[in-house]
Amino acid sequence: MNKVTYEKAYCIKMEGTHIRKLSLVIFAVIILSGCSGSGFRIDNNSSENQAKAEEVLKNDKRLTSAVTTFHENNLLTAVTLKTFSRFKKVKIEKELKEKLENGYPELDVTVSADSKIWMEMNKLIDLKDNKDKGKKIEKLKSLIKEET
């Protein structure tokens, strides 16, 4: 019977402490995860003129950042969008692709608003040597096409 009183006392003592600790941790995570980078980056190792692409991307108010790479006959662009523009992701991708194709009719243009592609593109640009780039770009292009 002593055990009962002991457990009661424990219950009263511990009441609510777990949830308080937990909510603190969650709060900290939310606050700390608020930062992320942005900007417009272009990586050009072909003979094309990048000015047109820069113009198209920088003038679009719906974009928060864009990463573009010219490689051989590929033009690959990954963009991140403003929160509410994200609902029109597919439409914006299409529009941008059309605009870029107008500027570079001879290139194979791919535009993606997928954050995975954006992440990979950033990594790709940071790569020092250009040896594997072609392969990686092909891989990214197939990833974009993947449905499930």
Binding site: M1, V4, T5, E7, K8, C11
Partner: peptide, 13 residues
């Protein structure tokens, strides 16, 4: 039912 106010009166918990 140990949390019950009457827990100590129960014959078996």
């Amino acid at each position: 039912e140990k949390k019950s106010l009457f827990a100590e009166k129960f014959d078996k918990v």
